[in-house]
């Protein structure tokens, strides 16, 4: 079946390849990955380090472009998009959560969360309103004016999740979201992501090498040596 017949998915990758040149030597990070992630899916991409899962993540997040192959994000072929359109796609369609949170150190939780809306031209008052709501959704309405250094790791990651959500994306991409957290905080963050997925219909794609974390997802995509292994139960 062609993609058009099945309707647009959150992600549809067909024979994605990505190679890098390192010191003149070509390294194939991805060697022909095809996958489809539907809207509302909760997917874990798992694999050992060096398997290419981070590369895949960057391609899905439109932070990087494939060497060859086709990638449709929400039905749009990203190879047809300019640098500017790609930035807009990241801004509107995708929310990022990183392992090391990547919050702006000197900025309050509220302004950190509001940052994606700055690039959408949303007014300051409206931004703060939406950021407040997003922080409330992750249970941090009492931490609006705190800076990252004044919060625990778990709280910081929840701020990052609020930031990913504030723009009402279709997909949240989370790169090792629990990697820098202890078990309890990690579990809380996973609960939050699961709740988002279940309640808001947002597709959640997380990259992890933690089997326990991966077990929380509805689907697991295993990457090994730049290729996707056949999935269980499909």
């Amino acid at each position: 079946m062609s993609p058009a017949e099945r309707g647009s998915a959150a992600f549809e990758a067909i024979d994605l390849r990505r190679s890098y040149r390192l010191d003149g030597v070509s390294v194939d990070a991805l060697r022909g990955v095809s996958l489809r992630i539907e809207h509302g899916d909760f997917v874990a991409i798992v694999g050992p380090s060096g398997s290419g899962k981070s590369t895949l993540m960057h391609l899905l997040g439109c932070l990087d472009r494939p060497t060859s192959g086709t990638l449709l994000v929400d039905g749009v072929d990203v190879s047809t998009l300019s640098e500017t359109k790609l930035a807009e796609l990241r801004n509107r369609t995708i929310g990022f959560v990183f392992q090391s949170f990547h919050l702006m150190g000197r900025t309050t939780a509220l302004d950190n969360v509001a940052l994606p809306l700055v690039y959408r031209g949303v007014s300051r008052a409206a931004r703060r309103e939406r950021a407040r709501a997003a922080l409330a959704a992750v249970g941090l309405e009492h931490r609006l004016d705190h800076r990252p250094s004044q919060m625990s790791g778990g709280e910081q990651q929840r701020v990052a999740i609020a930031r990913a959500l504030v723009g009402e994306p279709k997909v949240v991409l989370a790169d090792e979201p629990t990697g820098n957290l202890d078990t309890r905080n990690g579990a809380e963050v996973m609960d939050l992501l699961a709740r988002l997925n279940a309640g808001g219909g947002v597709a959640v794609v997380l990259v992890t090498h933690d089997a326990e974390v991966a077990a929380r997802a509805d689907r697991r995509i295993r990457v090994r040596d730049g290729l996707v292994e056949p999935e269980d139960g499909r």
Binding site: A87, R90, M104, R120
Partner: peptide, 16 residues
């Protein structure tokens, strides 16, 4: 550099 990368990931265009 990291801040720039983050801003771009969150949707900052080259010209921003």
């Amino acid at each position: 550099t990291k801040e720039i990368g983050l801003r771009k990931a969150l949707g900052a265009r080259q010209r921003d």
